[in-house]
Simulated assay, not measured.
Amino acid sequence: MNLNHLSIFQAVAASGSISGGARELHISQSAVSKQLAEFERALGVLLLDRLPRGVRPTEAGRLLLGYANRLFAIEAEAAQALGDLQQLGRGRLAIGASRTIGGYMLPDTLAAFRRRHPGVELSLQVENTQAIEAKLLAGEIDIGFAEGIVSSGLLDYQVFAEDELVLIAAPGHPLASGAALSLAALAGCPLLMHEVGSGTRAVTERALAAKNIRLRPAMTLASTEAIKHTVATGVALAFLSAQAVRTELKAGTLGVVEVKGLRIRRPLYRVQLKSAWLSPALEAFLGFLPDR
């Protein structure tokens, strides 16, 4: 079915005359008459009764007009939706972030974006770095934020911030006295760690390996909050992001243990599929990220 013919038929039927349809479409009456005749021949039915004054849809014409009205209403709705999307009146943005970034760095950014663009639906999935990369490759999220080591050639990694890992202990722990810990003493300390696949764990292990320290974790916990609470009991130490322990350090429920000759800094990455299309929502969101 020729949609141009259908639009001419709809305009004429709605106006009740060939001349009225021609005025609405800004084309000549002869062109309208010719197109309508071609449309009726193609369909094999008479759509309009030609009256002394104007036209009137036949039974077939009334049937087709109902479909035409719905079709062009949907077309107008689609155009409006695309316009809204471009203007960020609607849309959806799925974000994945590793624990430190998702739990302690992105919430303020998400809140600011939401205030500016309330029509965009936001979702945040907090997983370890390995899982974030897998979700990006599977197309389950639009953008990821990772704190681990670059591992996939299919993904584009852009540093958007930096972080430091600090060794934390309970305030009453013998090593929290203020004296710096030697690397040899660190090797004998029980440490809590995230599971394999965690960016924090991968960066910690690499930094310690560079100092010839290879540790087996005393306990593996999948939650940063669980690690902090366990460290606070005094049974072990842990390396965590300084971002993740700001509140506890300020409150005095955890303390930082300095290690001689060891400082663990790491880049934090914004991760996307290479050559991925930036939706209007994603492009706007990137503008809310802090400048390095």
Rank of each mutant, 00 (worst) to 15 (best):
A81M: 09
L82C: 13
Q243C: 06
L165S: 05
Q158E: 15
A251M: 07
A76R: 09
F285G: 12
L262H: 11
E147H: 12
L65A: 08
V159M: 15
R216T: 13
I168Y: 03
H194L: 09
S152N: 09
A187M: 13
I101F: 10
L273M: 11
P107W: 13
L36K: 04
R292P: 14
P174K: 00
I213A: 04
C189E: 08
A60Y: 07
R114P: 00
Q10L: 13
C189I: 09
L167G: 03
M1T: 12
A79S: 15
G66I: 06
R214S: 08
L137C: 05
L165A: 10
L85I: 14
D49P: 06
Q86H: 11
R292D: 12
S182P: 04
S177Y: 04
S30F: 05
L65C: 09
N2C: 10
E59I: 15
S182E: 08
S30W: 10
A78S: 15
G287A: 03
E24P: 03
G188T: 06
E40Y: 07
V126W: 06
E40Q: 11
A210R: 11
P171D: 01
L46C: 14
A97C: 05
V32N: 01
D163F: 06
E77H: 14
D49E: 10
Q125L: 07
E248W: 03
A131T: 07
G261E: 13
E258Y: 06
A202P: 00
A180S: 08
I227W: 03
S152K: 13
L186P: 01
I95A: 05
